[in-house]
Design a binder for these strands. Structure first.
Lengths: 336, 336
DNA sequence: CTGTTAGCGCATTCAC
DNA sequence: GTGAATGCGCTAACAG
């Protein structure tokens, strides 16, 4: 029926163990033998059964990428990064949504581990900060890497940028343009980045002697609708801000939509800045100034850390960039 | 080490085979016995190894969703629909990108089949129309369902809407608003929907005695940038159209961006219509009129067809809807 | 450097 | 209705 390692061993005239060695890139195989086996594999078009490998061995060559996020662009970027690394290393990616507020969260992930024998798990925010999950993963001795964790830095390997510094840089850039009244749209309360970005914003204001005004700090949820609502609230203020910094790009898009509705020219009359977690801003609204966050790289590096499989805990810090697009000069004179 | 079916059988005081029967929902198990086994499974938190099941049995409880598409929203929708159906049926979803123009396409999919033992494959456009792939899948006797295939309707089960009728309805709606000069932005040449939508557009024009003008039919690639380029080409015409119908929403978004750049009010001065394959339009541009295509349902139904697993070929036709958002009245008088 | 033996955890024949 | 044996395709721990 199915082509097996035995067929390959017969075709190559070696034992099945030797074929296995070649498959697993083990040492102690003579080059000549290896070549013989490889050409037999090639000639037959043999592909080892992942199920059999997982069952017999310690590894399954599978990595799970979990997510609790409705932002298609963001998730797609994570996926692309993780997949690229998997492909390069002969791994498969299991991609699974979950709900950090579900009572079955831990159970579901336990099921994932037991059923699939995954070799490692990637936890993007907000999953990176679910204490019960981290604890369970440790108890089960499953390797995992967190993306942008806000808590327990020593609990696992992780990948992050300095969100606080990035938000500070962005805010400082707006101040450098002459803005003194800069609105902020906060991120989703479940995400650690939300408070980090707020901290950065505050730090920049403080450094320039600008008093914080709670009226121009609006809640958000990292999605378009909440950005739109926050933008409306800010622009309808008796004394609206001259610039608005949204904690991610979906929300910046929402703010921009409101500005269009109000016939406020961007960036001439209002500067809008965003954290581009996704490609949405880059795609649709070039005039926005953004902090570029390397989402795809997060997933790539996290996967690499998992596959390298050192037990040691490593923190990888990636770079961010503030990108100026179009003019973000302060308004001519409409605001106070 | 690991919890196995044997542990469950001992806890429940039955044989391994009986546990297996319960796991697979086979008949011929007394209710009492079933309950005993189920509570033992629950108590121990047992989860059967997918690898062992795939290796020993005929089924792997895995379905693969392939895609060759860079549209994050579209792919995310497909994923959501397929995943929902998998979850309801105890299946896992393997999610894998590919490239229909790669010489290794068939080999990659062969590898997928052999390595993972998938029970079935879902082929969204443009994969649904790769003849060599369909042939290979038949040769290997692997179940598959195609989404919106343009060719060989009897080659497999499939899910689709009537793209031609939908485009005709959309175009007719624009004509009903008084438009006589309606630009069209074509889709990606690899996709069957592209020509179907063109056909529908033509049919509507013909039905209303409007002559087709090749100058206002622009090529596109189903992405934002091509929509932007097509929009610019159309709006820079000496005699620009009063309405533009983009073959999907990413391109409609591109057209809208150009309209904004040109200070053309939408929908007051220009009507823009799109096929909303994704949620982009719904999210960002409420004034657009769209044909709603149930992308998520496509994937859900395709997965269900696969899991039901009847060998027979079934064609499922889903509904589309033309949705009016905001006014799409023809321009006051800027166009000819 | 290479081969032999014994399972991994389950579904699948069959008996009972 | 239920149970005991056999093997899926591969890796592991040993020999040589």
């Amino acid at each position: 029926m199915r082509l097996t390692i035995r067929d390959v061993s017969e075709a190559a005239g070696v034992s099945i163990k030797t074929v296995s060695r070649v498959l697993n890139k083990e040492r102690y195989v003579r080059d000549e033998t290896r070549l013989k086996v490889e050409s037999a594999i090639e000639a037959l078009g043999f592909r080892p059964s992942a199920a059999a490998r997982a069952l017999a061995g310690k590894r399954s060559f599978q990595i799970a990428l979990l997510y609790d996020n409705e932002n298609a662009y963001y998730v797609f970027d994570l996926l692309a990064g993780a997949r690229k690394c998997c492909l390069e290393n002969g791994f498969r990616l299991i991609f699974q949504p979950c709900d950090i507020h579900s009572p079955r969260l831990i159970d579901d992930i336990r099921a994932l581990i037991d059923e699939t024998h995954v070799d490692g798990i990637i936890l993007p925010p907000p999953l990176a900060d679910v204490a019960a999950l981290i604890e369970e993963l440790h108890r089960r001795d499953v390797a995992f890497v967190r993306i942008s964790p806000g808590t327990e830095p020593e609990a696992s390997s992780s990948v992050h940028i300095d969100d606080c510094a990035a938000a500070e840089a962005m805010t400082t850039a707006l101040i450098a343009l002459g803005h003194r009244r800069i609105g902020l749209v906060l991120g989703h309360p479940d995400h650690a980045s939300t408070s980090d970005r707020l901290d950065g914003y505050r730090r920049a204001l403080a450094a320039h002697g600008i008093a914080e005004d709670p009226a121009i700090i609006q809640p958000g949820r990292y999605d378009f609708e909440s950005g739109r609502a926050a933008g409306a609230a800010l622009l309808d203020l008796p004394e609206p801000p001259s610039a608005i910094f949204a904690s991610n790009d979906e929300m910046a898009a929402g703010v921009l939509a409101v500005a269009h509705e109000r016939d406020i020219a961007v960036p001439e009359q209002l500067s809008i800045a965003g954290f581009d977690d996704t490609t949405l801003c880059r795609l649709v609204w070039p005039p926005l100034t953004t902090v570029h966050q390397p989402t795809q790289q997060f997933a790539y590096v996290a996967t690499a850390l998992l596959i390298d499989g050192q037990a040691e805990i490593r923190r990888r810090k990636l770079d961010f960039t503030v990108i100026e697009r179009g003019s973000t000069a302060p308004p001519g004179g409409s605001a106070a």
